[in-house]
Write a protein that binds this DNA or RNA. Sequence first.
DNA 1: AAAAAGAGCTAAATCGATTTAGGCGCAAGT
DNA 2: ACTTGCGCCTAAATCGATTTAGCTCTTTTT
Lengths: 343, 343
Amino acid sequence: MARAEKRPVTVQTIAKHVGVSAAAVSTVLSNRHEERRLAPATVERIRQAVRELGYVPNVAARRLRAHDPDVHSMDLGILTTFEAPLFLVSRALEEVQRSVDARSAPDRRFSISIDMFHAGRLRDMPGLLNASRFNGVIITNTLPEDDAFLRSTTLPYAVVVQGRRLPNYCCVLETPGEGGRRAAEILVGGSRRRLVVLTPTLLTETTADRRDAFVAAVRAQTGREPVHVAADFTPASAAEAIRAHLAKDPRCDGLFAVTDTLALGALHALKSAGRRVPQDVAVVGVGDHEHADFFDPPLTCVGPAYDQVVAEIVSLLFNLMSRRRVRPVEVFVAPTVTLRAST
Amino acid sequence: MARAEKRPVTVQTIAKHVGVSAAAVSTVLSNRHEERRLAPATVERIRQAVRELGYVPNVAARRLRAHDPDVHSMDLGILTTFEAPLFLVSRALEEVQRSVDARSAPDRRFSISIDMFHAGRLRDMPGLLNASRFNGVIITNTLPEDDAFLRSTTLPYAVVVQGRRLPNYCCVLETPGEGGRRAAEILVGGSRRRLVVLTPTLLTETTADRRDAFVAAVRAQTGREPVHVAADFTPASAAEAIRAHLAKDPRCDGLFAVTDTLALGALHALKSAGRRVPQDVAVVGVGDHEHADFFDPPLTCVGPAYDQVVAEIVSLLFNLMSRRRVRPVEVFVAPTVTLRAST
DNA sequence: AAAAAGAGCTAAATCGATTTAGGCGCAAGT
DNA sequence: ACTTGCGCCTAAATCGATTTAGCTCTTTTT
C-alpha cells in the first residue's frame, strides 16, 4: 500500500505519465481547465494520475512563482519546543505582531509563525542551517544541547535568543542570579526557614540559574540548604511531587517555583494537604504565566519584566534584519518583584 | 532614510551594482568566499553593497533551491487568530505532532507551524488562496467574517475546520446545542434560578451556539431568562464584568462561562465579592483551558472531548492529504460533562 | 620558452510550478 | 476556395538563489 518512489511526484512526472505537458497538469491542478478549454477527458485522465501517483505540491516552488516582486516579504519565526507550554511565547508573539503591524505597508509584508522543535533537537529543524525558512527568528526555551548546537554554528541571518547567553548571538535574558536571590530574600525575609525549590526535571539555562541563585542565597542567609523537588512541566506532576515532599517534610514553610505552571500545581497540593497559603507556606513564582494574578491565591512573582524582555528582543531582531546592528550583544533585564497574596 | 525601491533587491541587483556575477554575490552571502577564492577586495565591495541596498533574501527561492528531491516534505499549518489565547491550539498541536512523528521517515518529513491572522481577516493571510504555503491546514477560532470568506471560496488543498459548519470543508465540532443544554441541566438541576451566561464580545459560531442553547434550555426549564454578560477574552475583563453584574444582581446564583478563561476571571470576581463557589454561586465552564482542574475551585466543565475532537481533525487532515477522502464531511463530537468542585 | 599551477571570476543549469504567447487542426462562414 | 474562429494543447519564460564546470589571465616551475 505504502507508495515509496525514490523521486517525488512533480507536475512533470504526471505530465509524462498521462502524455501531456506540464502546463496542462498545472492548469487542472489550479482548476483553470474550463477557461483554458482543456478537453474533459484529458482533465479526467490528469485527475486520475494525480490521485494515483500521490502528487504533493511543492510549496516553495509555488511561493517562488507566486512571488510579487513589488512586495518585500519577510518571514519571522518564533522557535520554541513542543515540550514548553505555548503560552510562554504569547507575549513575544503579541509584541512582534504589534511591531510588524506598525511596519507593514502595501509593499512590505511580514509573516510570523511559531515553529516548534523537540527539546534538545533544534539542530533537526529543517531550513535552520541553510536559511531557507526565515529572515529572522526568536529562539527560546532551548535545552543545553540546543545551546551547544547554537554555539557551534553561527546561523547566517537575524537571530535573537531569549534566556541564554551565547557569545555568537544577540541574547536577551534576565540578569543572571537576580531572580533566585530576590525570591530567597522574600522567603527568608518573611522568616521562612524550611524551604523548597521546585524545578522541571529538564532544566534550561534560565531555570537552572534561578534554582542555583536561590539555593546560594538561602545558604548564605540562613546557613540551611533548600530541598530540591523536580517535576514535569505540568501542574499535575508538580502537585504530585509536592504532595510527596509534604509527606516527608511536613514542616516546610516556603516554596520557590522556577516556573508558574509548577507553582500552580504546588498551590493545589498545599491547599489539598490543608496548608494555608501564605500563613503556613509562602509561595513565590516567576510571573511567566499570563494568569498568575488569577491563581488562588494570586502568585507573588520574582521574574523578568516580560514586556521589557520582549521589547528588547523585537528591537534587536529588527535592527539585525535591517543590518543596523551586526555585532552580538547581551541585554540583561532586571527582575521585577510583584508581591501578591501568596507571600 | 527610508529606502523604498520599487523593485526588491536580489542577488542580481547587487551583482549589477558591484559589477560582478550573481554567483559571486551568492558565494559571499553564504560565506564560501574563502574556499572559492574570491579576492578579499571583491568580497568587501559585495558586502558593502549588500548592506547599502538592504538586501533581503527570498526564502522561497532558497528553499526551492535547497530542496532535496529524495525527501517528500509536507507543510502543515494550524491557523488561529492573534486574539484567541494560544493555549487553545496546544492540544491540536500535540496531537498533530504525535501523528507526524509516527508518519515521519528519512524520506518523508513534516513541518508544523502555527500561523495567526487578525480575527475576521483570514482572507488577508498570504499564501492561503494560492496554496503556496501549506499542504494542509487546520483552521480554528474563526469569526463569522472568516467563515463567510471560507464559504465563498474553496481552498484547493487539505483543510479541516474546527468548530464551524461550512458545507465545502471537512468540519469537526461539538454537537450543536448540546453543550449549552447540558450546562443548563447542571445549573437548573442544582436548583439555581438566577443565572448568568458569560461570553466574549466577539462571538464565534461555537461560543454563540453554547450561549444560545444555554439560554433556550434555561428558558424551557424554568421560564426565566439568563442574563448575558460580555467581556474581552481576558480573565481581568471577565472579572470586571462579573463584578459589575454582581452589583446589579447580588442574588445571582449560577453562571455558565462559554470559555474557561472567562470562567477564571469570574471565579476571581465571585470570591473577592465574598461569594462562595459553589455554595452561593455555581460555575460551569467548557474545559478548553488545559488547567481547568487547577482552578480554585476546580471547574466543572461541559464541553467537547478535546482529545476526540483533535483525533478526528488529524485523521481527516491526513486522509485529505493522501486523497483517501475527497468529499467534505461534518463530524460531531458529543460534549462530555466533568463534574468538579465548582458546582 | 613552454608547460603547469593557481588565482579570480562567470555562464549556465537547476529546483518545481505557473503563465503567456502561440501553434495546429478542423469546422463554419462568405 | 479562402478566411475566420474555435477547441485543445505546448514551448518557453519566469520567480531568486545556488552550484558546477570551466574560462582567462598571471605567476611559477622546468
